[in-house]
């Protein structure tokens, strides 16, 4: 069974067609890049998979089920903005995650915090923008989830941290789970992806493996993306 499946999925905001008849399947063991220009529908798709939005028509299924409490228990979501309570410390955040998610692995989180030199007693309020992003990502990646939905996970962090995050995705690789990464920084993530989904104006224009694109087009996914979406 695919971990995520969209069938004729549409989402409208008033007159704006954010997603238009999207059909796609995400199989277990895949690390997928969700790539598209600004406003193409990436975040809308991820929010629908989370049950934060409901489809205007069509269906989105996680493990064959409509998004709800059961699917949320197995989906680990990194939003594209900060959502951590300002007054909490990292330690409190870990308690919070452990309370909410049965699959939260505290040891894994501690190891990553140490590696990135983040003090568990530090409060969110006192953190730089980059450190907040790191903490959020650590919490999300420390769940042993079936589907990771990462909306722009590497945009705000320095290149060394970016490498560490990508290494973390590889280290935590689980053949039973799928990871979807939405990003503009294609060149940075290309090597860790199996597949890419190109999305434009709410439509899926391509779903292909990275090496297929390189083989067929003789260029990187990054270069091919620039060609397809030339302004």
């Amino acid at each position: 069974m695919p971990i995520l499946e969209c069938k004729a999925l549409c989402k409208r905001y008033g007159n704006v067609q954010a997603l238009d008849n999207v059909d796609l399947k995400v199989e277990p063991g895949r690390v997928i890049g969700l790539l598209g220009p600004n406003g193409s529908g990436k975040t809308t798709l991820i929010k629908l998979a989370n049950g934060l939005l409901t489809p205007s028509s069509g269906e989105i299924l996680v493990y064959g089920e409509k998004p709800g409490p059961e699917t949320k228990a197995v989906v680990s979501y990194l939003p594209d903005r900060g959502y951590l309570a300002e007054w909490m410390s990292v330690k409190q955040l870990m308690d919070f995650f452990a309370d909410f998610y049965a699959d939260f692995d505290r040891d894994r989180a501690m190891e990553m915090l140490l590696r990135l030199n983040i003090d568990p007693s530090m409060r969110v309020k006192a953190m730089s923008k980059g450190t907040r992003e790191k903490v959020q990502l650590i919490l999300v990646m420390s769940r042993r989830a079936g589907l990771y939905l990462l909306d722009e996970p590497i945009g705000g962090v320095d290149p060394a941290t970016r490498d560490y995050i990508l290494e973390t995705i590889i280290r935590n690789y689980n053949p039973e789970a799928a990871v979807i990464i939405s990003t503009h920084l294609i060149a940075d993530v290309e090597q860790v992806l199996d597949e890419v989904i190109f999305i434009n104006s709410g439509r899926v224009v391509l779903q292909s493996s990275v090496d297929e694109i390189r083989e067929d087009k003789g260029k990187s996914v990054d270069a091919y993306f620039r060609e397809v979406f030339r302004c």
Binding site: V31, D163, L166, I170, Y173, Q191, D194
Partner: peptide, 8 residues
């Protein structure tokens, strides 16, 4: 080590 996808 290579920084690539395990399936690759």
């Amino acid at each position: 080590e290579a920084g690539v996808n395990p399936n690759t």
